[in-house]
Design a protein around this nucleic acid. Sequence first.
DNA 1: TGGCTGTTTTTGTGATCACAAGTCCTTATG
DNA 2: CATAAGGACTTGTGATCACAAAAACAGCCA
Lengths: 216, 216
Amino acid sequence: MLLTTRALDTKIPAHDRVYRRLRTRIMHGDLPPGQALTIRGIGNEYEVSMTPAREAVRRLAAEGALTMSASGRISTPELSNERIEELAALRALIEVELASRALPRAHLALIERLQVTNGAIAEAVAHRDAVSYIRTNLEFHRTLYLRAQAPAMLAMAETVWLQMGPTMRALYGRLRRTEPPQFHRLIIAALRAGDEPGLRLAVRSDVTQGLRMLAS
Amino acid sequence: MLLTTRALDTKIPAHDRVYRRLRTRIMHGDLPPGQALTIRGIGNEYEVSMTPAREAVRRLAAEGALTMSASGRISTPELSNERIEELAALRALIEVELASRALPRAHLALIERLQVTNGAIAEAVAHRDAVSYIRTNLEFHRTLYLRAQAPAMLAMAETVWLQMGPTMRALYGRLRRTEPPQFHRLIIAALRAGDEPGLRLAVRSDVTQGLRMLAS
DNA sequence: TGGCTGTTTTTGTGATCACAAGTCCTTATG
DNA sequence: CATAAGGACTTGTGATCACAAAAACAGCCA
């Protein structure tokens, strides 16, 4: 029997494929803030018709990853400073809780994985690669939070990341530094020591740290 | 010139109308958990074709108001106890912050509006009307949180409410009490006194109070 | 009577088309 | 040269249809 490109074809719907790929690009900062998109353009890029492209856009708009003007035009969000502050506060609230819940379950293998990821972050910083930086940084946080066994909270945190994606790219793009995030080391140290107050402070500091770049 | 039913027709798209009406019904507990829905059925009910009905469903599914099975079947969510605990914790985190931010802006007119709303809640409780209870209760919280001037946080809180809508109905349906929520009086008292720690505690207590019904 | 198999119906998915509103560019006019 | 008006093009919206897969149902056999 002849099989298609993949054995055991999982048969993912087209709208889901388009959604996932677009979502990844937005979350990682592959698109700048205010970038205009069209349904026909998306459909053309992913070789699907307007229908699944429209559903992917609608889904992303519902999550705040895309904004729609009154006339229905689609673009990545341009966040005001007030909204960035709000989203950072949400990150602090949710991610501190996630880290706290992950702490009792964080064994040595997890901490070592975090250190490896932290090395990848340092490499992205050294190469001035904004997209790689954002991707590995989110991977660091997600690796930790997955241990919290709290899928609804993690989904909320990822929604916030998604909304900040294009803006993060713009912020880190104007940042010119060579050292990796120092608070990640504090997070790892607190995990090793089982120090919950220290962990909460370290996560909060790491999450709200990017806010200082707004003063530039 | 002849006008339609509304002067200055705002021209709301069909998918948006369907979305809003469905969303309100779900958030207020008009649908029980696990209720099956079909795209054609929704389109028929609101007199639109499959296309806008599908977009409304997709949007609600993205917000967690509806769940889709692997084969694409649509239903209201049936939450596990673990997920209810998570959502309640999210409510506590976000709404305590919203209340805290609203406190400095809460003047007397707002507090009086909250008391009027609280009276409506008592009436709904007296009539054993679960939907009215949920609606007025959310109105109480939203009235307060609107003063926080934090639209992103409020949207997050409403998303959590939306996910809990059908389950709230089931929980309050099995509840047989006659007194209105006592913590609302504490919230109002803390607002009057400008007592921020007291407000945070009162909101947290009110939000997590419903969890005790899970033991039944 | 109970379980299984075949068919029929229901249901979500994706493509295509018509349409209206918005946007952009050209052009004429002051 | 600047500006406004006109048309051409782009773009989102909604309806309809074909199709495949899943669910529901009926009938058959042990």
